[in-house]
Amino acid sequence: MLDLIPPVLVNGCAIALVALGFHLVIRSTGGIVDFAIGQYAIIAGLAAALISSELHLPTIFVVALGCLASIVVALLDEVAVIRPAILLNRDPLAMAPVLATVSLLMVWEQVARLVFGDFPLRGPSFLPGVRYSIGEIPIPAHSVVIVVTTVLVFLAVQLWLDRTKAGRMLRAIGDNRLAAQLLGFSVNRSRALAFMLAGATVGIAGGLISPLAGFGALGGGYYTLNGFVALFLGGVASPAGAFLGGIVLEAIKIAVGRYLGSGYQDYLVLALSLLVFAFRPQGILGKRKTRSA
């Protein structure tokens, strides 16, 4: 039972970071779901794996470079696709931005396949071979790095959102783009910043988890879905919801995998998300909102 805690924390942190990226994108766009977001993790992880096999750099640089790749991809998405799609946003394509992200997921999956090949790759891990243990349970140093990094990223993002002008602006823009524009905020720059941050947090998740999971080029949809479900399980309104949702989702999945068999995990995620959407759409931490015209 206790030996489940390390995998729950490690996988939960990765999903939580993806959910955090989702949160930033949703906040800055007033509710657009970026289906390509899971692919940022894949690209960062694959880039890290490729770089570490070509160059002998310290792991931290490799992860940072992988992260840089996903930041560039996210920024490209925003500038070249999301921004024009939001501006176009006209009949009969009211959903143009979301559909565009679906296209982006397809495009980036195929680009990743061309660049990194068809075979799964593993990135380098931190302090390979170093293990700690608590009681009977062995804990690789890499897992500790994952959890600590995740906590630091969440604290940094929360501080940025609360304390800096740019962070607070994000909220205003998400609530009402037009009003924010009229007040003289640079909506586009702010949205680009949010996408870069999302690329960074999701990229960190990808870089950190790829030595454990091993990424194929076509895995983006998995992280998109789990990140989204985690965010709405925890509560969409705050980074804390993303963190809680990631941990809770992975805890449930891993417990089900252990006691019922791994074949049931996916069915459970579906059932759980349908139940959350139907009965508690505001998530564990959220407050109830009324529907507007």
């Binding site: 979301v98 879905l225 709405f232 069915y267 579906l270 349908l274 139940l275 959407f277 139907a278």
Partner: peptide, 28 residues
């Protein structure tokens, strides 16, 4: 209808995600 009923109180994006899950799980 089941997926629609579960997401009907929410915006279209929830339907997109819930249906994507359905698609993935069906393939499995």
């Amino acid at each position: 209808a089941i997926v629609g009923l579960a997401t009907m109180r929410l915006s279209g994006y929830f339907l997109a995600v819930a249906t994507m899950l359905v698609g993935l799980i069906f393939a499995r």
